[in-house]
Amino acid sequence: MTLRPLTVIGFDADDTLWQNEQYYRLTEAQFRELLADYAEGEHVSERLLEAEKRNLAHYGFGIKGFTLSMIETALDVTEGRAPSSVIREILGIGRELLSHPVECLPRARETLEALRGHYFLVLITKGDLFDQERKLAQSGLGDFFDAVEIVSDKTATTYRRIFSRYGDGPERAMMVGNSLKSDIVPAIAAGAWGVFVPHALTWVLEHVEKPSEAPRFREIADLGGLNAIIEEIGG
């Protein structure tokens, strides 16, 4: 009996299935305006990014960590003089970020619908558990997935574990996502296929070089091109 070359397909969520980064950018713009009396906008953004880098190990990925980084940055650029009203407004825009609408990206629903029942589909996303569950529920895409994995980070070890748990190991699995650093490079390192779907907005900390020479690396303009990749590899 010939084994199928592909049995499990993993999908990233934020900016792969639905919009996400655009809301962070809008929130950062509000934050810069809030601190306009204390520092130039570009300086505020630079200090915020530094705070996010420092805090990833403590707070992980997601809105709550981002909000705490904004508070830390406000205290930093004002040298501890940020009034309570500013801190209150930061908490407010953080809460707004937690309630933004879920806008699915083009071809997401029809792609999942076409694959459902033919492959084991697993959503693999990182970030705040509450927020990711909220977005999945509001997206209306939850029923297409056979499993959901909300992880603290995405590494080759993460993908080996997930693809071995739900399938026949990473060699017969594929990961689809917009982040080279989180979705593609570690999945390929684990032995899986990595299909890169670029998004116009990607967080700067997710930028790495494309693994263009890797035999299992593929790139498509949008999710509508995924079926062609699956057919190509004999899935």
Score class of each variant (00 low, 15 high):
Leu180Cys: 00
Leu3Phe: 13
Gly194Asp: 04
Gln22Cys: 13
His207Pro: 10
Gly80Val: 10
Pro198Val: 04
Pro101Val: 08
Ala39Glu: 14
Gly117Ala: 03
Phe61Leu: 06
Ala228Glu: 15
Lys154Glu: 00
Glu89Trp: 02
Arg4Ile: 09
Asp168Trp: 07
Gly167Ser: 09
Glu72Trp: 03
Pro211Ala: 05
Ala147Trp: 01
Asp14Tyr: 00
Gly167Asn: 09
Ser182Pro: 06
Leu141Trp: 00
Ala29Tyr: 10
Asp15Arg: 04
Asp222Trp: 07
Glu232Cys: 07
Leu136Phe: 04
Ala173Leu: 08
Pro5Trp: 10
Asp183Phe: 03
Thr67Gly: 12
His58Val: 15
Ala147Glu: 04
Gln30Thr: 09
Arg160Ala: 11
Ala108Pro: 10
Leu3Pro: 07
Phe11Leu: 03
Val122Trp: 02
Lys64Asn: 11
Val148Ile: 14
Arg25Asp: 12
Ala214Arg: 10
Arg134Leu: 10
Ala51Glu: 12
Leu223Arg: 01
Gly60Tyr: 07
Glu213His: 12
Arg88Phe: 06
Ile93Gly: 00
Glu209Trp: 00
Lys53Glu: 15
Glu113Leu: 12
Tyr38Met: 06
Leu68Glu: 13
Leu97Lys: 02
Ile220Ser: 08
Pro186Cys: 11
Gly167Arg: 08
Ile63Asn: 01
Pro170Ser: 06
Phe61Met: 02
Ala57Thr: 15
Leu123Lys: 05
Asp168His: 13
Ala51Ser: 15
Ala114Arg: 15
Gln22Trp: 06
Glu46Gln: 15
Gln30Asp: 13
Ala74His: 09
Leu105Tyr: 02
Glu113Ala: 14
Pro170Gly: 09
Arg54Gln: 14
Asp37Met: 12
Glu219His: 11
Phe130Ser: 14
Leu115Met: 08
Glu209Cys: 07
His118Thr: 10
Ala228Gln: 14
Ala74Cys: 06
Pro215Met: 02
His118Ser: 15
Glu72Ala: 14
Thr125Cys: 02
Arg81Asp: 11
Ile71Asp: 06
His207Asn: 13
Asp168Cys: 11
Ala214Gly: 01
Arg4His: 12
Met70Pro: 00
Glu209Arg: 14
Ala190Val: 04
Asn55Asp: 14
Ile220Thr: 08
Gln30Val: 04
Pro101Ala: 05
Leu17Cys: 09
Phe196Ile: 08
Ser45Tyr: 08
Leu34Ile: 08
Ser84Asp: 13
Glu113Gln: 15
Leu97Met: 03
Ser182Met: 07
Asp153Glu: 15
Ile124Cys: 03
Leu34Ser: 05
Tyr59Met: 10
Gly94Ala: 03
Gly41Met: 04
Asn55Ile: 02
Leu26Arg: 15
Gly60Val: 02
Ser99Ile: 11
Glu110Leu: 05
Val148Lys: 00
Ala190His: 05
Lys210Arg: 15
Lys126Asn: 02
His118Val: 00
Thr7Glu: 12
Ala187Asn: 08
Arg134Lys: 14
Ser139Lys: 05
Glu209Leu: 13
Ala82Ile: 06
Arg134Pro: 11
His100Val: 15
Ile162Glu: 01
Gly41Thr: 01
Ser182Trp: 07
Thr73Lys: 06
Ile93Phe: 11
Gln138Val: 07
Glu33Phe: 11
Gly92Leu: 10
Val86Phe: 03
Glu149Ser: 12
Phe61His: 09
Leu201Glu: 14
Gly167Lys: 04
Arg160Asp: 10
Gly194Trp: 04
Glu50Gln: 14
Ser69Trp: 08
Leu26Ile: 12
Gly169Thr: 00
Gly224Thr: 06
Leu180Lys: 07
Trp203Leu: 11
Ser182Cys: 06
